[in-house]
């Protein structure tokens, strides 16, 4: 039980990274990238390819994948997503769903269907761990992933709060037209946001391939998990994705201790419960709870100013 909870919390770090990219695009570019999970898997395969074909050391391969993913994101936003966004909410969904099919089957065509993992290149990191009191065993890799997630989210927070492009992103996410009137180039901001989101997807994909096996068709499940973390944590909140990721990870981890099918089912149920609470008519209890969430978030400065949604 305790073991499962600890593993679930650490798994939440991975979900936070993949969810943060999805959430960033949802907030700034205003659509759900249905290929986000496939992009994560693409990041993993790019790293594998850089190691196998370019002969790069593992960490150099990782360092190479991130700018490549950012470039892909920039280009796709510039030449595809921006164009489809003009046609309403339907077309971006359809285009990214099509992109997912291209990525999955393209990777299948190039790399074949066998499962692959980065663990083979990581030396003893993939199995090393610490023996803790109460019979707990914690792997080094999950802890590193979690730490990386916190650092990445912290970096994003700093960027959104203190840099010019970060302020422009927050402005664009609140109201693109008003931001443009204030001299923000919303299209450029959206390209930067997409580039960052793709980098986060690639990073998450490499984390995934370090701790598990990936196949070309692993993406859709990752998209679902990322989206669940976003919803559970609350849309538009950066640290919410970490909380959502942890909640999802714990639910799945507890579920997995029942049976393999319950790994996914437990997460799905948590997702629907949170959705039901969010959708249920705004009764006084719900409002009070949400106001308290906001107060706690404010007290801990978890949210940037102006994102407060529920009046006291």
């Amino acid at each position: 039980m305790l073991e499962a909870i600890v593993q679930g919390v650490l798994l939440g770090g991975y979900y936070a990274v993949i969810a943060a990219g999805l959430s960033l695009m949802l907030g700034v570019v205003r659509f759900i990238n249905l290929a986000h999970g496939d992009l994560a898997v693409l990041g993993a395969y790019l790293a594998l390819a850089a190691i196998a074909f370019l002969g790069l050391p593992v960490w150099w391969a990782f360092a190479l994948v991130l700018p490549v993913m950012a470039g892909i994101g920039w280009g796709l936003q510039r030449f595809l997503f921006a164009r489809t966004l003009e046609g309403g909410f339907l077309l971006p969904l359809l285009a990214t769903f099509g992109l997912g099919a291209v990525l999955q089957n393209g990777m299948q065509g190039i790399f074949g269907s066998e499962t692959r993992s980065l663990a083979n290149y990581m030396g003893n990191l993939s199995w090393a761990g610490w023996q803790l009191p109460f019979g707990l065993y914690v792997g080094v890799l999950p802890v590193l992933t979690f730490a990386a997630a916190v650092i990445v989210l912290g970096g994003l927070q700093v960027m959104l709060s203190f840099t010019k492009i970060g302020r422009a992103m927050r402005a664009t996410s609140t109201d693109p037209e008003a931001a443009e009137l204030q001299g923000v180039d919303a299209r450029r901001v959206q390209r930067v946001a997409t580039a960052i989101a793709f980098m986060l997807a690639g990073l998450a994909g490499m984390f995934l391939a370090m701790r598990a096996q990936v196949t070309p068709y692993a993406g859709p499940a990752q998209l679902i998990f990322a989206f669940q973390a976003v919803i559970i944590g609350g849309i538009g909140s950066l640290w919410g994705t970490l909380i959502g990721g942890i909640a999802l990870g714990v639910a799945q981890s507890l579920g997995a201790s029942i049976s393999a099918q319950w790994f996914q089912l437990a997460g799905h149920f948590l997702f629907f419960v949170v959705l039901a609470i969010r959708m249920s008519s705004a009764g006084p209890t719900r409002e009070r709870v949400l106001v308290w969430f906001d107060r706690i978030a404010d007290a801990l400065r978890l949210r940037t100013r102006g994102e407060r949604k529920h009046a006291d």
Partner: peptide, 21 residues
């Protein structure tokens, strides 16, 4: 053509979404 055929379908869908919605 298996996977490449399915990838082609995705590509056509993208082209229609962006060029001929």
């Amino acid at each position: 053509y298996g996977a490449w055929y399915l990838a082609g379908l995705g590509l056509i869908a993208i082209l229609f979404a962006s060029m001929l919605p």
